[in-house]
Write a protein that binds this DNA or RNA. Structure first.
Lengths: 157, 157
DNA sequence: AGTATGTAGTTGATCCTTCAACAAGATAGA
DNA sequence: TCTATCTTGTTGAAGGATCAACTACATACT
């Protein structure tokens, strides 16, 4: 005999909120991505990677650490960095301590591309998301998503 | 002479929240997608489409309307429906009123796949997102995302 | 030293998404 | 009617993400 765990169905209100979340993230991400591409030829995932690099000491981060920071697979980061390298936005460097290690390094050109892109991105986040949101609501969303990250990050298997 | 609009930079707190949002949606969507694929061979976008179809009269919706409902491009919906049709989860039907019209129709088999998948999905939304969230915070997030949808939906160009 | 196991990163195939171009039916105006 | 224009939906190519397999270095154990 098996123990069946009852599926906890969502209330009508929870369902409404969940759908707003799904639809909202879809249109928001889509829009931010399009704005970035149109103005700077960067995708959102690429932009996120550049932001991390720009904040790191020496503007360099090892591949695995980078993958973890943006919550992408290593393979994905390898491919993305390869594309960015073709455009001279990033270069690869060998790691001194670890013979296997490779770090991605933001070039000066990459940095200036990022600086320009940051304006577009921040403007978008402000206009599409923050401007019309009650600050208390926004903080509440932050608490929830922070919680999701803590519970789920790195636990995908 | 041009009027330059100053870029409104984000406060440290807003930035923290925005990053939690980015990271949270990434890991959450990734996880829900993996769960669904592993258990039912369905992706999140496919699942969302099936949900809409299941709720429509006759379990049928026209392509354009479907695309609008899930906020995907028409091309994307065409491809997705083509895949679902190969697995006999959906069939295409001609539209009576409009000679150009095509509707996607959920098959009985598709409906039963969806029923099973819904358990997995709802369980995930509950466990990963709702369970550890303050209901008031959750409602706040709903207001924000609802607002985003209203401002952005269908205005991608 | 030698072996086994774990970790870092890459590769190429496959799948999914996007994009531009297109075919065909609808609609409106001369 | 004839033409122009708009809308619907599809197509195929190109770009990006995922997955499994692989190389190479590191670590631990005997």
């Amino acid at each position: 005999m098996e123990t069946t765990t009852a599926t906890p169905w969502l209330t009508a209100e929870q369902q409404r909120i969940w759908r707003a979340f799904l639809g909202g993230t879809t249109v928001l991400m889509d829009r931010l991505d399009r704005d970035l591409r149109a103005a700077h030829g960067l995708s959102m995932p690429e932009y996120e990677i550049l932001v991390r690099l720009s904040e790191a000491p020496g503007r360099a981060i090892r591949m695995a650490e980078l993958a973890d920071a943006v919550a992408h697979s290593r393979s994905r980061v390898t491919h993305t960095i390869a594309r960015l390298e073709r455009e001279n936005i990033v270069v690869r460097g060998q790691c001194a301590e670890d013979g296997r290690g490779v770090s991605a390094v933001l070039t000066d050109h990459g940095f200036s591309v990022l600086e320009a892109a940051a304006h577009t991105h921040v403007q978008g986040v402000h206009d599409y998301l923050i401007e019309n949101a009650d600050p208390a609501d926004f903080a509440a969303m932050g608490r929830i998503m922070q919680n999701v990250v803590e519970h789920l990050h790195g636990k995908n298997f």
